[in-house]
Design a protein around this nucleic acid. Structure first.
Lengths: 339, 339
DNA sequence: AATCAAAATTGAACCGGTTCAAAAGAGGAC
DNA sequence: GTCCTCTTTTGAACCGGTTCAATTTTGATT
């Protein structure tokens, strides 16, 4: 494999000049540039990304680390929501020829070890952190190391951190008040896992929604899930076993809503007519479900793109004025599962 | 940020010795090793992955490039099937601390440019290629450059290429003969996009299945899709508009099957009872659908893991005896959409 | 033809690791 | 104490780019 020195020799110039040609610097005479380009062509030379990284201290790669939560059983992994996020990030990254390196790791000690490894050996230029947990050790670590990162979600201490989040409380409140308008008063709530940071925020939204429609909180109707269809199904069966089951169920993601609908249908009830179901996310499949799912829409691909651009600014030390703390208002997408 | 020379100075040894300690070479006296470790600790030193890569010529990263096909509209992207593949690959990669770098790029000239860039600048140690097309230019390129890669799918010319594939023809045939046993003779077929390599193989499976059950091929019942729910829905409407519509539809992935079911249900028919639907993949959501989808199961996560291990062998120049050409027999997962 | 500022070119030093031949040190045998 | 072998340590060279101060070339001006 030819190196820059081979090219220099072939074109009868110095390595510095070849480097200048490679980087499009305009301090090279046209005739010389041509000679260098010819040599590059003749030797079929391509600069090594690694060698370049060594001096520039940039890898042109960003990282995303996915933490697998507690319950690991088949199906826990494949979350369309995450893919949409990755897709948004990587489509934006492509525009600047940036790669997105992706790791999957179980929560626990190995997780932090991976973060240490990735950060301290400088394998990527920056990280996008998502699925925030309470007192997230990842944020503390990244702040301490002053490593460039952005967050999807709101960090507990928001100073000096750039983040983009969807106003989940607002979304849940929208769903609850909408259900209230339809006459529902007994509303079930399938919560996100307790350790997720967004859980508390969304719970606030549920409380204020319930208050607005003049209903009471019944903790029997509140169950914690883990974002899988399975958990939505199991929890809904539990709700339906109650003496006074809910007439509507608010689920904290679409996958749990799918599980809830399955539980409802398996008992011969009709979703929408007998029991209303609302999801959260609006993944592609939701509008194709039977019946189509009413859900709180997060523009996830766009968020992914915005996260990348924000991270790029952080990496390059540019001001993130205004962009560094964005709270996006989600919208309620009304379909047949609530009528 | 401290370098290996800082550590050497601090421990009063040479850089060579520090390097030996870092790499666990056993030619260092215990006392010296301890002194070096203390220095590493004191300075909080972590070796640079890039510098290491420069000499070892290994990045400890592999790549996956996702090509966005022709039709680009919202929802075309989020394919749970792909995420499961990524997830399988990256979970296996994690065991050897290998990162998976992911690019998303529209099909076309930019695609090959990205491949050139990634390969020739040696950004990753190897590539996993998937969604093969006829006469795929990517394979020709990678072969020519002798770049390490493995394929999910079967390359047209299989010499010197390591691949793992699911026997799609067998899967489709299973589905058709099963439907035949249920009494179906008019069977619709939603084909994959024509440019995909697997399209021909699966078509053979369909033909042989139809022949086995003694039915006739009716090209009116055969439509080409693009793997999205939308295309499944549109094509199914077209089938239902026929004078003699099919009594069963075989779809080449689960997402199109979801669209097909939606079309069927929107006309007041009952899936399973009136018209049977079969999918392909068995993504997590399929068993939660209403009704649960009968589908041809590919063990995609396991395939992802196997692909990674195969690629690692190729990268390290190890023999891939037996592993380099695996044809996996899929199974028919029978659920309510066909009864 | 001489002068001089601007443009072009040079090449050593550097980025931060690994490698390996050569040198130094340790320990056992006589 | 000397010799020899085996173990440990050294440090220059290397990986393949970029950078920048110093040098050379160019060409316009007088």
């Amino acid at each position: 494999m030819p190196t820059i020195r081979d090219v220099a020799k072939h074109a009868k110039v110095s390595v510095g000049t070849v480097s200048n040609v490679l980087n499009g610097n305009n301090n090279v005479r046209e005739e010389t540039r041509q000679r260098v380009l010819d040599a590059i062509e003749a030797l079929n030379f391509h600069p090594s990304a690694i060698a370049r990284s060594l001096t520039t201290q940039r890898t042109n790669t960003i990282g995303m680390i996915r933490t697998e939560l507690r319950h690991h059983f088949p199906g826990a992994e494949s979350d369309p929501f995450i893919l949409d996020l990755i897709d948004g990030v990587s489509s934006a990254a492509e525009e600047t020829r940036t790669g997105v390196t992706f790791w999957t790791i179980p929560v626990g000690s190995a997780e932090m070890e991976l973060y240490r490894d990735v950060v301290l050996s400088r394998q990527v230029d920056g990280l996008i952190v998502f699925a925030l947990r309470d007192n997230d050790p990842r944020l503390a670590f990244l702040r301490e190391k002053q490593f460039p990162f952005v967050v999807f979600g709101r960090p507990d201490s928001m100073t000096e951190t750039n983040w983009i989040d969807v106003d989940g409380a607002h979304g849940i409140e929208l769903a609850v008040t909408y259900l209230g308008k339809l006459g529902h008063q007994r509303i079930g709530y399938l919560s996100p896992p307790g350790e997720q940071f967004l859980t508390r925020l969304r719970w606030q939204g549920f409380l204020s929604g319930i208050k607005k429609i003049g209903a009471d909180i019944d903790m029997q109707l509140v169950l914690e899930g883990d974002f899988t269809e399975r958990s939505g199904e199991i929890n809904t069966h539990q709700l339906l076993d109650l003496e006074y089951p809910p007439t509507a169920i608010v689920c904290n993601n679409d996958r749990m809503a799918f599980g809830a609908m399955r539980a409802i249908q398996s008992r011969g009830y009709t979703v929408g007519h007998d029991i209303a179901v609302v999801g959260f996310d609006d993944i592609t499949l939701s509008r194709y479900w039977h019946p189509p799912l009413t859900t709180i829409r997060q523009p996830i691909r766009e968020i992914g793109q915005a996260l990348f651009h924000l991270l790029l600014a952080v990496i390059e030390g540019l001001p993130t004025d205004g962009l560094g703390a964005q709270l996006i208002k989600p919208e309620l997408q009304i379909r047949e599962s609530t009528r």
